[in-house]
């Protein structure tokens, strides 16, 4: 267990020392979301209708940017051999990598998401639920993304392959997240959607460590 915490601490420290990486991702999130008003027009009613979808899709794409390097960097400098030969279970270490990725990428995205939502005229009733969906849904996103990152680790153009593997897996998360916020805005209870969203993240948690460990062992061969 200590090995996992040490790995989380190391990855968070690395991210802290390379602040430009997360800055790039946050800038991408804001800029990509701000392109939509140019594309579909600045009318607040139209934007308000699509705001939640835009926030979620752009957050998802921004998350994807950091997943690309999640295991790739470990393979390139040889650290993967040390992780695979460490006494701690590789499942736990892979999970630790995802937790660190969530802390360093998803958490900052969640923090600035209300700003992006404001830019897109998200109705006031939706904010609390938006944050809840992000908190409940992004762990699933990171975990499915971790599977994709581990699978595409030895592939050329791994980033494109990663998107092909991960994006279909994230569709259910997107559906329930958007449905929850829509329900809240319409004055209905978002609870069923939030439970399903949390359920998806728990499901991802049960399969992702094993899938990641299996493909990392393969990659280390």
């Amino acid at each position: 267990m200590n090995a996992a915490f040490a790995l989380i601490a190391r990855d968070v420290r690395l991210a802290w020392r390379h602040p430009n990486e997360i800055a790039t991702i946050l800038a991408f999130f804001v800029i990509a979301a701000s392109l939509f008003p140019f594309g579909i027009g600045p009318e607040p009613q139209i934007l308000a209708r699509v705001a939640i979808g835009i926030v979620w899709v752009t957050a998802l794409l921004a998350c994807l940017m950091s997943l690309d390097r999640l295991f790739q960097a470990e393979v390139e400098d040889g650290s993967l051999d040390l992780l695979v030969t460490a006494p701690a279970p590789l499942e736990l270490l892979a999970l630790a990598k995802v937790v660190a990725q969530w802390i360093t990428t998803a958490l900052p995205l969640i923090v600035i998401s209300p700003i992006v939502a404001t830019m897109l005229h998200l109705p006031a009733d939706g904010y609390a639920t938006l944050l809840l969906t992000l908190v409940l849904g992004t762990p699933g996103l990171s975990l499915f993304g971790g599977i994709g990152a581990a699978l595409s680790v030895n592939a050329r153009r791994g980033g494109a392959l990663l998107a092909l593997i991960v994006l279909p897996l994230t569709v259910p998360i997107l559906i329930f997240a958007v449905a929850a916020v829509d329900a809240a805005i319409a004055g209905l209870s978002p609870r069923p959607h939030l439970f399903l969203l949390a359920g998806l993240s728990v499901f991802a948690l049960t399969i992702a460590p094993f899938a990641m460990a299996a493909s990392l062992r393969q990659a280390a061969e």
Binding site: A6, R10, H18
Partner: peptide, 16 residues
């Protein structure tokens, strides 16, 4: 980005 000492102490903790 990690220092020499950080590498060594991480490695010790990684190996429990």
């Amino acid at each position: 980005a990690l220092t020499v000492a950080e590498h060594l102490s991480f490695h010790a903790k990684l190996r429990g």
